[in-house]
């Protein structure tokens, strides 16, 4: 079942088309990667989903109903440009933000305390935000985003400002939230975290959606049936079943080759062809990274 569907969303500012007919659907309890270069329209799409701005045409369906302001109480949004009231105490601030999301006071206090315990930051309740380090502030901000147990969590570049240790803590929290039933939209242009976390992705470039689907399907569709082989002798494959794209000596005794298997043949055929010519050290399929797909797509569109 889809938690969130946007149908043919378009939005334009005076002279600038920010979104052009963008449709995405986000399955429940998945991590959905929203990818695109800066200025592609990711933030505009998120702001339309969170009802911060309105769209010109199209529809946003949340949990089977058209999106309303009331329904945004079930969304937790961590904007890219984020911050908190500097002169307000951590506890009070979280309480305020949670109650704006419709939580009552005693529930909010209980949940804040639970989160503080979990992230080991209980001593911060009475501290002013301005007395915390940037990374600590980000942690508080993350808690503020998920405190009201939203069905949909939207994270815009969530790891910026975190050191690797804390980034890992947050990553684990994100995965745990998904286990508990939350759906997460994860907007970023940092591909390594997408590779690691996302189940589904959509790519936006120049206001248009250029690609979407499950991560596995997308990667499969970009496979070229190419294998990476490491071996200790130079190889030459004379028959017409395989093409050596590239061969290089990586050190004195090792070579690495990329071999494309032509139609009708399998990886085992390639292996049996290689074995007589050289000692095989490793053999694996070349799977394109999301980063490669992303860059090749953006580049090819730029050339058009």
């Amino acid at each position: 079942m889809e938690l969130l569907i946007t149908k043919n969303i378009s939005k334009s500012y005076a002279a600038h088309q920010a979104l052009d007919d963008v449709s995405i659907s986000i399955p429940e309890q998945t991590i959905f990667g929203l990818l695109g270069p800066n200025g592609a329209g990711k933030t505009t799409l998120i702001r339309i989903i969170t009802q911060i701005i309105t769209h010109d045409t199209g529809e946003v369906i949340f949990n089977g109903q058209p999106m309303t302001l009331k329904l945004t109480e079930q969304i937790g949004y961590l904007p890219e440009e984020r911050g908190l009231y500097k002169k307000m105490k951590v506890g009070e601030q979280l309480l305020y933000l949670a109650r704006l999301k419709g939580l009552n006071r005693s529930d909010a206090v209980k949940r804040i305390k639970a989160w503080f315990k979990k992230l080991d930051i209980s001593a911060w309740w009475d501290k002013n935000i301005e007395d915390l380090s940037k990374g600590m502030q980000q942690k508080v901000q993350f808690v503020a985003t998920v405190l009201h147990e939203p069905k949909l969590i939207i994270l815009d570049e969530p790891f910026s400002g975190f050191d690797p240790v804390n980034a890992n803590v947050i990553k684990d929290e994100i995965l745990e939230l998904r286990e508990k039933g939350a759906t997460i939209i994860f907007s970023t242009h940092r591909m390594e975290s997408v590779e690691e976390l996302c189940d589904h992705i959509a790519m936006i470039n120049k206001s248009k959606k250029i690609l979407d689907g499950s991560k596995k399907d997308i990667k499969d569709s970009f496979k070229t049936n190419t294998y990476i082989v490491e071996h200790d002798q130079k190889i030459e494959l004379a028959n017409g079943s395989f093409v050596i794209d590239q061969q290089e000596q990586i050190d004195e005794e090792h070579y690495q080759s990329q071999v494309k298997i032509l139609n009708g043949h399998t990886s085992n055929d390639l292996l049996s062809a290689l074995i007589p010519t050289s000692q095989i050290i490793s053999f694996k399929e070349k799977i394109p990274s999301i980063n490669d797909i992303f860059i090749s797509h953006v580049k090819s569109q730029d050339h058009e």
Binding site: E73, Y77, Y85, L97
Partner: peptide
């Protein structure tokens, strides 16, 4: 201006008009 420079505005207006 404080809310704007603190960048808390976007968090808040995702909850209220």
């Amino acid at each position: 201006i404080e809310e704007k420079t603190n960048r808390i505005l976007e968090v808040i207006i995702s909850s209220v008009r």
